[in-house]
Design a protein around this nucleic acid. Structure first.
Lengths: 332, 332
DNA sequence: CTACGGCCTGACAACGTTGTCACAGGGCAG
DNA sequence: CTGCCCTGTGACAACGTTGTCAGGCCGTAG
């Protein structure tokens, strides 16, 4: 900047004025400075600028998702990125892998970096630690899983409803032995889905077969093993509800290995690429990820813009997409 | 920091020393300052620190990929993230969507933000513009597609080899009318793959049927339409080579719609989740994405660390993964 | 001619931090 | 007792930028 000022024969402040397009600079000076800027390929130092400006923004938001390479997280990230771009803001993305400590570390790191806001798909059970972090004024919005121990905006799917839709779909087709695979029970999405699954039964005066309900499954391989085990039972399930996208993959694999993919019904939670190309095409509960991403960004940038209204908790309704695998009748 | 110094009864500089764990501070002062830091929840301002320190790092790298939500880009991003974490560095990710202008803008933006380095999966044909950007000292590493017009490190797959493997696999099984779908020809990955496809034929004294080779396909839907059209020909292909993951999806869809998925062979380029669960399981050319990500990070952090050796161009060999779809004989 | 106001421009301090250097105090050798 | 070195600490400037304010110039009205 000093060099630019020297080359243009003006003071530092005037260069600053031109660079920031402030009014009150005569056209010819503006032109001289502009030429000098181009000639020297001058780039303003955003960090220094932010340092001086009171309450300036870093133009950066943090996004902590479960796993950047998971299709759900990735799609969400993409929606966030698009919304952030409109605010000339970059997205700093990181994967938590359900690591509670990592969540805390990364939030701390992001706040220390002075990001303008944070989007969190939490791995932790409770987020009391956030209260201290948010005192710095950094807004946070939760997505996919609601906050506990701290009251901030959130955008989540109605997981109980989604699971209920899946279970009702299967029950309505006559299934009575429905297996269900869920993620870690301490994660609210998993417990809500389980609750919805159960409620669909009790509403009809039925009860889920507890031997067929398995919680705490964290990987595709594990899901596959569990399905194999369930199919070995004396009274194997006639249908399966996979409570998460990677669990559905495991279930599909196990059924194919058994040659049962056309005999046992399957409904997955979360849509994913190619689900419609499987044999049979996979019936799923779909969350509108792009919409969720947009809503999250909307809340976050409202907060960044100074919105101090009470925290909003947006619930998005999932829908059932019938493609074939969920419409297999019992005993097929 | 001023408050911390006041509370601990020391000077600013001493607080700085304690925070940065510099030697030469007596244990009791260190303790007092530490207590004050905790009590006030003091967080050092990284931007100010970087401003003062000469040649300090921002602890941030930029990653410009084709599309954050594409499984290839997402997996690469994840590998980058893991490697960056080891260097206490965050990843600023953005999608280019093959937008040439956006690529330039984003690179400019990242350099202006003073990121420590940039990973680029370029959308542009040539990157002469980078020369000016890199004069600032920001290192760049290309991935998936090699640089042109600027000489920097790169990590790419041997695309010609991959396509050759696919074509040979099909030719060896007796196919002679092999359709091939490619992305935009100005993108080197696409043209290299096409060249490899052709070479496999000429090596055997054959020639690809040009009516069956289609370039410039950018979406799944378009790929699907093209396959439908090719299947309508008087002499339809007995096998298809899809030169990119999203094109393979379109081909699978078209074949399924025709009920030909078990009669026409198909080999895709790029592995993706669930490819092994399709009917029939999809034979693909696999690039080891995690490995590529690691290699990219290795080069980038070496450069950030001061490595000034000549640019390295790492080529990763893809492999063919036979799963079924590529082993369908002609006329099945 | 004087006075006043508006338009441009620049000097200076400040943002939060750290590199440099100076200095106080204490221990130790001569 | 003197002089030196070492250890611990602080004052000050500087990083690159912008907010504040003062001041010079010009035109216009009185």
């Amino acid at each position: 900047m000093r060099d630019v000022a020297a080359l243009a024969g003006v003071s530092l402040k005037t260069v600053s004025r031109v660079v920031n397009e402030e009014p009150g600079v005569s056209p010819d000076v503006r032109e001289r400075v502009g030429a000098a800027v181009r000639r020297l390929d001058y780039r303003p130092n955003l960090a220094a600028s932010n340092l001086r400006r009171t309450g300036a923004r870093s133009g950066l938001i943090g996004a902590l998702v479960q796993d950047v390479s998971n299709s759900f997280s990735a799609s969400l990230l993409r929606a966030l990125e698009d919304a952030a771009r409109a605010h000339r803001t970059g997205v700093l993305a990181a994967s938590l892998d359900e690591g509670v400590d990592r969540e805390q570390e990364l939030v701390h790191d992001l706040v220390t970096r002075r990001v303008d806001g944070v989007v969190i798909m939490p791995a932790s059970d409770r987020q009391d630690y956030l209260v201290a972090e948010l005192r710095t004024g950094t807004p946070a919005v939760f997505v996919d899983r609601p906050p506990r121990g701290v009251d901030v905006d959130s955008v989540v799917a109605d997981n109980a409803l989604g699971a209920r839709l899946a279970a009702e779909h299967l029950l309505d087709r006559g299934h009575r032995r429905i297996a269900a695979l869920f993620h870690l029970p301490q994660i609210t999405t998993a417990s809500d889905r389980r609750a919805g699954f159960t409620a669909a039964h009790t509403d009809r005066g039925l009860r889920p077969d507890e031997r067929l309900v398995v919680e705490g499954i964290t990987s595709t391989d594990e899901a596959s093993e569990v399905v194999h085990r369930l199919l070995d039972l004396a009274e194997p399930p006639t249908a399966i509800f996979a409570g998460r996208n990677i669990l559905a993959s495991g279930a599909v694999r196990a059924l194919q290995e058994r040659g049962l993919h056309r005999s046992v019904a399957l409904v997955g939670f979360d849509d994913f690429p190619l689900a419609d190309l499987l044999d049979p095409p996979l019936t799923v509960i779909r969350q509108d990820v792009s919409k969720m991403g947009r809503l999250v960004a909307e809340r976050l940038f409202a907060r960044i813009g100074g919105d101090t209204s009470p925290p909003q908790h947006v619930v998005v309704e999932p829908t059932l997409v019938a493609r074939g695998s969920g419409e297999i009748p019992p005993g097929a």
